[in-house]
């Protein structure tokens, strides 16, 4: 019989796979939320732009609420609110919904900025050439507006990707939660946190750099 009992086991290769799987989950939940949130955000941004006084009296304060309350509180609130209205959601669905709305709230302002970035005379000119409202939107506003706000949108998307770590409070095992589980077992916090941090960094840093580069090139 062994003289001492060891409760903790070392860091193994399997654990790396476990972390990898969790990283995929992080990518999945943030990818879905960013995609859905952006679509919703563009819609809200358009409403904010076209709705004028009505939208700034109704939609804007609502979106503002999502930006003024910590995401973690929003997650806990919605997770506990869903059963009250009779929805049974798993942590993934719940996290996706909250992150989507959160992304939309952030992206709406960005999208409105994009529409505002297009000079009004330019749009009048396109309408004078006989373009319909939607043709003007698609062929004139979109190409110029998207270019103006792309770096800001990348910032929002990366922010949501990083904030997706908070979904762990609902029990969804994404990268940071997985690393916590491993830390509890292996008692090697530094190594595991370094791996998890390196993953986020490797994802975020090149994209941020790329967006900076684009911003510089387009501003010339």
């Amino acid at each position: 019989m062994e003289s001492s009992l060891n409760f903790f086991t070392g860091f193994k290769f399997q654990d790396l796979l476990f972390l990898g799987e969790a990283a995929v989950r992080t990518l999945l939940i943030s990818g879905i939320s960013i995609a859905a949130g952006t679509v919703l955000g563009v819609l809200f941004g358009w409403l904010l732009y076209e709705g004028r006084i009505f939208a700034s009296a109704t939609l804007a304060p609502v979106l503002d609420v999502f930006r003024s309350i910590p995401l973690i509180i929003q997650l806990v609130l919605f997770y506990n609110f869903a059963p009250i209205i009779g929805l049974s959601l798993d942590p993934f669905a719940c996290g996706t919904i909250v992150l989507t709305v959160y992304t939309a709230a952030l992206a709406a302002n960005v999208a409105r900025g994009g529409i505002e970035a297009v000079a009004i005379p330019l749009r009048r000119a396109s309408r004078s050439l006989g373009m319909t409202y939607w043709q003007d939107m698609i062929y004139v506003v979109a190409p110029i507006g998207i270019r103006a706000i792309f770096p800001a949108w990348v910032g929002v998307a990366l922010g949501v990707m990083k904030d997706s770590a908070l979904v762990s409070v609902l029990g969804y095992i994404e990268l940071l939660k997985a690393s916590q589980i491993l830390i509890t077992r292996t008692q090697e916090p530094f190594l595991i946190l370094a791996v998890a941090g390196a993953f986020y960094f490797a994802l975020s840093f090149p994209v941020a750099r790329f967006a900076d580069r684009l911003e510089q090139r387009w501003s010339q």
């Binding site: 990366l158 904030d163 770590a165 762990s168 940071l176 946190l193 960094f201 975020s204 840093f205 941020a208």
Partner: peptide
């Protein structure tokens, strides 16, 4: 700027 704030706290 490129890691989650929660990661920084855990660290």
């Amino acid at each position: 700027r490129n890691t989650p704030a929660l990661f920084q706290l855990f660290f």
